[in-house]
């Protein structure tokens, strides 16, 4: 009983350390800097010329 528990617990420690390091890496590489941008960016098409340009008149903002 205890033998298998020790075995499983060591795996737990290993996974915990691994998950922690993974998260630290993600934070360091800036993946949490902007939580909204990437979600928006995927919606933006790169086919700029297809989008009609509207000219703003003076006083219209």
């Amino acid at each position: 009983m205890d033998g298998i528990l020790i075995y499983l617990l060591s795996i737990t420690f290993f996974i915990v350390i691994f998950a922690g390091l993974g998260f630290f890496w993600a934070v360091r590489s800036g993946q949490f800097e902007d939580m909204e941008g990437p979600a928006q960016r995927i919606l933006m098409d790169d086919d700029d010329p297809m989008i009609p340009r509207r000219r703003l008149k003076d006083g219209e903002n």
Partner: peptide
């Protein structure tokens, strides 16, 4: 500070 907070939350969460 934000990164540090995130790391702390992660450690607390995983633990």
């Amino acid at each position: 500070e934000r990164q540090r907070d995130l790391r702390r939350i992660a450690v607390a969460g995983i633990s």
